[in-house]
Nucleic acid binder design. Structure first.
Lengths: 108, 108
DNA sequence: TTGTATAATCGCAATATTACGATAATAATT
DNA sequence: AATTATTATCGTAATATTGCGATTATACAA
């Protein structure tokens, strides 16, 4: 017990949950917002802006990368991270229909 | 250490992270999808549809409720859960701008 | 009152996440 | 070659999550 029963759910449900999980930490939300705003997107500048140790940020970047929310490529002497939209779109396709929901029976 | 350093981030970043966290488990994604589809939204029918024990589902419902993604009210002899859109909108307002992003410098 | 159905809570074990110092790996500079 | 800068990885401690059986709480029915 304790492990997530992911095998019991559909592939898509697990994908959505994974993308949401990647955004389930304020540091990672913050990183994504930084990438959206910044001209440069090197990890170093991220370390300067967040109140976390370099090792911790590197770990968060790894998780975002694994979830397909950001992608990195070597640019000169340092790494460049940018947003990756494919999986974010998957999440938005899950959320948008929920916003247009109206309860079919009057109970809530 | 191990505790999330939430105090180091803005209120909004923490809110977004919390909503995302509520959706970061396939069971909870599944529950939300069920509420979107179903006529009735009693907890009992959710237990019938998911391969998890009643105690576990009750816990997941509690988390969704705490995150403000669903709301429950007593209806007759059982509880009725429905979607709550306010916080889902907050998350969508975070995600939608990301989809329209294009990298300012050619690096990714 | 007694029984039944529904859902929440408790207690626990198994796993997962978060954070950071220390260290390693890589590439550019001197 | 030695130094410096940047980022990844390792090891470890603290904390959080997941899942379920058992129990409790509540409302309705007999």
């Amino acid at each position: 017990m304790g492990a997530s029963k992911s095998s019991a759910f559909t592939k898509k449900q697990n994908e959505i949950a994974n993308i949401a999980k990647a955004l389930s930490h304020p540091a990672r939300v913050s990183i994504v917002q930084l990438l959206l705003k910044k001209e440069s997107c090197v990890c170093g500048t991220i370390v300067d802006e967040l109140p976390l140790a370099q090792a911790t940020i590197s770990q968060h970047l790894k998780e975002l990368k694994l979830a397909g929310i950001i992608k990195g490529s070597i640019e000169g002497n340092s790494l460049c991270y940018c947003l990756d939209q494919k999986n974010l779109k998957l999440l938005s396709e899950f959320i948008l229909p929920l916003l247009h929901y109206t309860s079919p029976i009057k109970c809530c």
